[in-house]
């Protein structure tokens, strides 16, 4: 039955059309969760606000459980789901660059557009910086092409890597998330900040 595009239940264009509305919904929920505030986002790194961790892990767990149950009911064929390729070197480098930018700028790419949509000036400045970064990456591509494409691992999944079942992986992630949420709330009490 699913994925809908692969089985040609809906066309590629309908897919993009639906993605437009899902995107609007995603942005709306991000904004409602307070993700348009760079102080709230940066709070993740200082410990006074861990809502970012909670929202993203809740999203991940919901999606994981949903996909596996859909697969169990025969509603979606997991082997046809697109999984991003892993280039381990660029994943690490990109993670460091993105993390540093996240702390300094107070936004990640998605939330910066969320902030820009409600007129936050710092979000607009962040987006300008984002495009400068895109420009530098594109123009200097030949310089870092070797690093960028090094360490190709295909599309490994955590479950395949450790040789455990997907369901068990989900259970472990849920348990890990429960501990992280607990730790996050402990940090919020430990490093409180009222003025953000």
């Amino acid at each position: 039955m699913g994925p809908l595009v692969v089985y040609e239940v809906i066309t590629e264009n309908t897919n993009l059309f639906l993605a437009f509305f899902i995107g609007i919904g995603f942005g709306f929920v991000l904004e409602q969760a307070g993700f348009s505030s760079s102080r709230k986002l940066a709070g993740m790194f200082y410990g006074y606000d861990t809502v970012v961790l909670k929202v993203f892990f809740t999203g991940a767990i919901t999606a994981m459980l949903g996909l596996l149950f859909f697969s169990l009911f025969g509603w979606v064929d997991l082997s046809l789901i697109y999984v991003n390729e892993t280039f381990v070197h660029s994943a690490i480098l990109g993670g460091v660059v993105m993390g540093a930018g996240f702390i300094m700028g107070g936004f990640c790419p998605g939330t910066s557009f969320c902030g820009a949509a409600i007129g936050k000036i710092d979000a607009w400045v962040f987006i300008i910086g984002l495009f400068i970064g895109v420009f530098i990456f594109g123009e200097g591509y030949s310089l870092w092409e070797d690093v960028y494409k090094a360490g190709f691992l295909g599309s490994p999944r955590i479950s395949e890597y450790f040789g455990i079942s997907e369901g068990l992986t989900v259970l472990l992630v849920i348990i890990a998330a429960a501990f992280m949420f607990w730790g996050g709330e402990w940090a919020e009490k430990k490093f409180p900040r009222e003025d953000y």
Binding site: L65, F69, S165, E166, G167, V170, L171, I174, I175, A178
Partner: peptide, 8 residues
């Protein structure tokens, strides 16, 4: 957690 247990 229960859903996780079921799927595991």
């Amino acid at each position: 957690l229960m859903l996780g247990l079921i799927i595991a």
